[in-house]
Design a protein around this nucleic acid. Sequence first.
DNA 1: CCCTTGTAGTTGACACTGTCTACTTCACGG
DNA 2: CCGTGAAGTAGACAGTGTCAACTACAAGGG
Lengths: 204, 204
Amino acid sequence: MPKPKLKPQDLREACLAEAAAIIERDGLEALSLREVARRLAVSHQAPYKHFASRDHLLAALVARAYAAFASALEARPRSSDPWADMAAMGEAYFAYARAHPRQYRLMFGAKLPDPADHPEMMREAKAAFGLLEKAIAALPRGPRSRGACRHDALFVWSTIHGLATILLTDSAQTIAMPRAALKAAESEALARIGAALGAPAGPP
Amino acid sequence: MPKPKLKPQDLREACLAEAAAIIERDGLEALSLREVARRLAVSHQAPYKHFASRDHLLAALVARAYAAFASALEARPRSSDPWADMAAMGEAYFAYARAHPRQYRLMFGAKLPDPADHPEMMREAKAAFGLLEKAIAALPRGPRSRGACRHDALFVWSTIHGLATILLTDSAQTIAMPRAALKAAESEALARIGAALGAPAGPP
DNA sequence: CCCTTGTAGTTGACACTGTCTACTTCACGG
DNA sequence: CCGTGAAGTAGACAGTGTCAACTACAAGGG
């Protein structure tokens, strides 16, 4: 009995959507190609016609996650003050990590396929990081080399990423950090990042 | 034919050692209870007499990793200057992450079993974090509440942990960050952390 | 002394997984 | 009309974690 027909590439799209749904609901470890196929009511081998391996499906998902992440960063409330703009970006970063913890872990936490094998994934990731570099280059701090900006960007990213990771994973729970200490951690970290980069003093 | 006898709990110890060896050599994803059993030339179910599940074995390994990590932090070269001492601790942190990347990922990166189910793992983790809190409390910055110190500790940990994670995982490779930018990142981050906490200016 | 009890280890099974190979279907272009 | 290639199916294989039932054996109580 022939299946109801799908347009070419429809199954590929459906696989990505279903896989994303599984991760969002049950986490990365619950994702399997066979489960995807099962939910789409196709044979367990059908997804292999569109993804060479599980890693390839994963890489495609990660690429999309980076793209969505970059969009969220770009959708931040804009400000004409470069310092405020960077703070807004930091807040957007935390907000995204909080709103989509699984996707955040998918991008940064999980064991990923080798980036060199998945150029599209790398391209999206670079684009996201480029937003941060741009915001930092716009800061009014006298002429700075591109290399210096990259150093700053790495520092800022490290700090925000580190805190986001800790807040997201069970690390804080593991060391029995009281919830109260986590509450203000985000804005505090952003303020300190600003201070470390030489921002003018914020509101009292 | 009876096996050559092992003292009670010997197999448990051997499992932990073998599992650690597997992770060190081939990474976490290569670890399986069956592979452990195979290498020890026992049946695939023997480890289950000592670990209720794969997660329980993992939790025991993580507890040991935390303990080793804490030892490495404590073995840092001591200094009578609290600021220098904290910097030394940061360097020891990075050094450990660099020397034992798999173990570091085991502690912070990987999907871990629920901490609440593994109190020993939590205890070791708290002990490690406590070292940082202690070093920060020793900083000469006028009287600070315990809560304030915890905030500082969380900030410092975030920054160091974030950078260590980025340096360790493929994240830097993913965004095609040039190696040169990574070279000085550690000491730079430590200097900025000091600045953010109000350290006196370092050597010119 | 026997007999129970508990622990450590064994074998066998089950339901999963990713992936390989071989087969079918079917639209399209010469 | 006929091939050709893409998409989907079916079956197999090795690997996994885990459950259940069985065996060997040391220790201890009656």
